[in-house]
Nucleic acid binder design. Structure first.
Length: 907
RNA sequence: GCACGCGUGGCCAAAUCGGAAAAGGCGCCGGUCUUAGAAACCGGAUAUUGAAGGUUCGAAUCCUUCCGCGUGUACCA
């Protein structure tokens, strides 16, 4: 038979003994292998366009092939598989693909550290992880697998680049990057943290570098307004974050003329300059007491020789401070200096000082603000620090006629809401809203302003000085300049290898065979662009490629994509809420505008799942966290299981936290190990059941045994009954036990249907458990059951197995085979998700609660649908209720049909 | 600092519109079985729903304040 022993982790595992007679026992390994082979052999999940079937596109975010699946993947893909199976069983033609986000930095890190070829490393990792996914039994159409690092794929990254270049959506511009002079390397913000190079520790400088950009800003309005049409299909916080990221802001530009003291009005026309400011609150302009410029503002340069040494020094200081990558923890204190220059407020001709301030950013708006301390927090802080006047010009409506000057002096904090204008000449008494419109119009009429809209969204910088990415298909020719590669010459293939140093200089620039080429225009000697594209490029359109993965001419056929897309359900981590999901929305609009698609939005429904986290233990005395695997740590816990203290094997006190599971932190759980011990079905079932999908899941190994037990319980029940079922239809006469069971069955189907439609995955598992419990509790036994009971059990068991399919497909397939008597599988047998009957799900009698003054006093049993008056009468007549009403005045009676009657009494 | 979200038995969690003495699982305790342990089966205990106010006939659910936790964001004019 079999033996059961404790594994080294203290968990239960099954060991197969006599393999000949084990069908009646649940051996996950055996059936999982069997059905995985069946699915592969029968290509069960391969799908084709079929205009007669409704389609469903189920997509999960594709993994980076790091080499190991982690529990976050297991969660993500288990959830996706539930939806895919559910829709299949509902009769949909389900596209459920997977692929590899296989370009990116870790491959280069591996190349540096382990001297391996990034391509070989990547391919090996894909092989390993594909095996892991298959052992989990995920229902992917493997014939559509793609990998971003293969030329067949990145050829079309380049194809898109050229299309965008043609449309003016791809362009090159000078931009500042973090630069380490010592390493001759560009650094990301993280790598330049604290203003020092992470590798050599030397100070980081900013360097101008020519980089390629995609013009995402061309679609800024559409990206923002499109969020409204997505509406309820996406989580609210994702919509919000995208709105904030795009950051559209409506306001006005206003020009302030510049004056140089001592040269009153004597500037020659060609020397006259204005400063354009952007403001959303033109209604506060009478309160402007300074103009504050970003230190990089061109006016600073232009009037450079008018500025004192002190001003120059301060500007240099601010710039130096800004050059340091920001430390996110610390709040930067406001700093600045009066340049001595003056500006003219065009509304009242008042002269205000021009300052330079560290809180004004050149990258946003115009790099200049009008400082209105009374009505803006930042300006208030700045003015308070440097003694600038604070002048109130907006009042709360009910105070508009009081003594504002006095009030203004008393302002202890800025008044930033809208209100009514005061101290604003002609505009006094107008509301902010009216004033904003009228004053902008006034400015426009007089030629010193106009309405303006600004965005936080920037163009997408795609240049990377890296090897492991898609080469940018551009050639530089001394004669012809920047020349795009011909479409026919794609792909521009990566060389087999390149000197990867990991210091950040472009490896491709050192591969002469790659760099040296002929100009596509004049055929003279030319040089290739040696930067590669950001990997977000690959993931911006991959799921369109899945629809037509072998197309050599186009990224995909528009007709095929039109059938499958948009994605009906997308599932992934919420860390991609902004970048990936903005870029792919941008890409969709570009694809639409080059006639590949007719969609505006690519993803109908989005689900972001929470992280899988676990306890970590580490020592950070050295300033860097050194993690210890939990198995080597002695942990002391309080009564609630919270960690009080932790010590390493050597007895050293360790710090602890709950962090995202990963191998490097030592708190990872290896999915292979889980599958080995418990089986893929139990592992998946548990991950789904343990917590709502959007919540963080704190890994707790113990719970998984309950999942195994549940599967075993179903298994045993099916085997107990399988020989008793017949083909007869439900008997007309039904006894109480049969009726009760059928009611539970149909209620469960209704409940699970609803849960899955609303993307809840933990509650349907609980519902399945309840139905299973109901079967055991029904007391119906095969030996003594009547015909109606047998058919009720058969209905319940069949429904249970079918509904189990999305959660534990191997077990469900096997049990379905046992029930139906063949091994052809669910799909070949045309299995469908069970349907419920409202009639059968309805309770035939219900309990109605009788409360007196809100306290439960009695219950009556009645049929559903009783009228309010009947219920009221019945409640008032109830003997127990009478006891509590007796001698008191009934004030009112609240009746909730089918639920309760509450009698309110006084006295 | 700001914004948003969340606090339900020891743990994870459920609860259409505000409507019963608040599901299910894990863990725990007891019993049957067993050489023993485990599994399996049967049974059991455990909740002022973070705190304090308020609205209501009635609050886990709505409002206010506070406490705790989490996420996002960082001078966006």
């Amino acid at each position: 038979m079999f033996t059961i022993s404790k594994s080294s982790r203290g968990v239960v595992c099954l060991r197969g003994g006599d393999r000949g007679h084990m069908d009646e026992k649940y051996f996950p390994k055996k059936i999982e292998a069997k059905w995985q082979a069946h699915w592969a052999k029968n290509k069960s999940f391969q799908v084709q366009v079929d205009d007669d079937l409704p389609k469903f596109y189920q997509l999960e975010m594709l993994p980076y092939p790091s080499g190991n699946l982690h529990m976050g993947h297991v969660r993500n893909y288990s959830v996706g598989d539930v939806v895919a199976w559910y829709k299949r069983l509902k009769g949909f033609n389900v596209l459920h693909p997977i692929g590899w986000d296989s370009f990116g930095q870790p491959a280069e890190d591996a190349a540096v550290k382990r001297k391996v070829n990034p391509r070989d490393w990547t391919e090996e990792n894909i092989k390993a992880m594909r095996g892991q996914l298959q052992r989990l039994g995920l229902s992917y159409d493997w014939s559509r697998e793609i990998a971003a690092h293969r030329p067949e794929y990145y050829k079309f990254d380049q194809w898109f680049f050229l299309k965008m270049y043609d449309k003016g959506l791809a362009y090159k511009k000078l931009t500042q990057v973090n630069w380490c002079e010592h390493d001759q390397a560009t650094l990301s913000n993280e790598q330049a943290s604290g203003g020092l190079c992470w590798r050599c520790g030397n100070p980081v400088t900013k360097r101008d570098l020519e980089q390629w950009f995609f013009k995402t800003t061309a679609y800024a309005d559409e990206l923002l307004d499109g969020l409204d049409s997505i509406g309820g299909g996406w989580p609210g916080n994702v919509l919000k974050r995208q709105r904030d990221w795009i950051g559209r802001s409506e306001g006005s530009y206003i020009d302030f003329a510049v004056r140089v003291p001592g040269k009153t009005g004597s500037l020659k026309p060609e020397d006259r300059r204005t400063i354009k400011v952007f403001t959303t609150r033109i209604d506060t302009i009478y309160g402007a007491t300074a103009i504050v410029l970003a230190p990089e503002h061109p006016i600073v340069q232009e009037f450079s020789n008018q500025l004192s040494a002190e001003v120059h020094a301060k500007i240099a200081e601010i710039l130096a401070e800004k050059a340091k990558p920001a430390d996110h923890e610390a709040e930067v204190e406001k700093d600045g200096i009066d340049t001595g220059l003056k500006a003219v407020n065009p509304f009242n001709s008042e002269l205000v000082p021009i300052w330079v301030g560290n809180y004004v950013m050149m990258e946003y708006g115009t790099g200049a603000v009008m400082s209105v301390p009374a009505h803006d927090e930042r300006d208030f802080e700045f003015a308070t620090k440097f003694g600038l006047p604070i002048r109130q010009v907006i009042s709360e409506p009910h105070m508009a006629h009081e003594h504002h000057t006095m009030h203004a002096l008393a302002l202890e904090q800025p008044f930033t809401s809208s209100g009514v204008l005061v101290h604003s000449d002609y505009w006094n008494g107008k509301t902010s809203e009216a004033a904003i419109e009228e004053m902008t119009h006034h400015a426009q009429m007089h030629g010193f302003g106009e309405p303006a809209t600004t965005y936080k969204l920037r163009d997408w910088g795609i240049s990377r000085q890296r090897f492991w990415g898609a080469p940018i298909p551009i050639v530089y020719c001394d004669a012809c300049g920047t020349v795009p590669v011909h479409f026919d010459d794609l792909p521009v293939e990566l060389p087999e290898n390149a000197p990867i140093t990991g210091t950040g200089e472009s490896p491709l620039s050192k591969v002469t065979e790659f760099v040296e080429t002929a100009c596509p225009k004049c055929e003279g000697p030319a040089r290739r662009e040696t930067d590669t594209m950001d990997t977000f490029v690959d993931s911006s359109w991959y799921y369109f490629r899945y629809t037509d993965p072998e197309n050599e001419v186009l990224p995909f056929s528009p007709d095929i994509a039109a059938y499958w897309t948009p994605v009906d359900q997308y599932i992934g981590g919420d860390d991609h809420a902004v970048m990936h999901l903005i870029y792919t929305r941008f890409w969709t609009k570009v694809m639409r505008d080059i006639d590949l698609l007719s969609l505006d939005e690519p993803v109908t429904r989005l689900l972001t799942q929470g992280m899988v986290v676990g306890e970590t233990f580490f020592d950070d005395e050295s300033g860097k966290r050194i993690y210890q695997p939990p198995t080597d740590v002695a942990v002391e816990r309080d009564a609630k299981g919270k960690i009080i203290s932790a010590r390493s094997a050597e007895g050293k006190e360790l710090k602890f936290a709950i962090e995202r599971m990963s191998k490097s932190k030592g708190n990872g759980v290896d999915p292979d190990e889980m599958v080995e011990i418990y089986g893929a079905d139990a592992a998946r079932l548990f991950v789904l059941f343990a917590a709502p999908v959007e919540n963080e899941l704190v890994w707790n190994e113990a719970g998984i045994e309950g999942a195994v037990r549940f599967l075993q319980r179903i298994w045993r029940y099916v085997y107990k009954w399988k020989d008793s079922f017949g083909n007869s239809s439900p008997a007309a006469e039904q006894g109480e036990a049969a009726r009760k069971l059928r009611r539970k069955t149909h209620q469960t189907i209704r409940r699970i249907d609803l849960s899955l439609d609303t993307l809840q995955f933990n509650t349907p598992v609980a519902a399945l458990m309840e139905l299973c419990n109901a079967l055991y509790d029904s007391g119906i036994e095969p030996e003594t059951a009547t015909a109606d009971e047998i058919s009720a059990v058969q209905e319940a068991v069949t429904s249970l197995v079918l509904m189990l399919t999305p959660f534990a497909p191997h077990t469900a397939e096997e049990l379905f085979a046992v029930l139906i008597g063949n091994d052809n599988g669910l799909l070949a047998n045309g299995a469908r998700f069970p349907e419920f009957s409202e009639e059968l799900a309805a309770d035939d009698e219900i309990e109605v609660v009788i409360q007196v003054n809100g306290k439960l006093r009695s219950k009556i049993t009645t049929s559903p649908g009783q009228g309010i008056e009947e219920l009221e009468t019945a409640a008032l007549a109830d003997a127990k209720a009478q006891e509590f009403i007796a001698g008191k005045e009934v004030i009112k009676v609240v009746v909730v049909p089918d639920k309760l009657v509450n009698i309110v009494v006084k006295g």
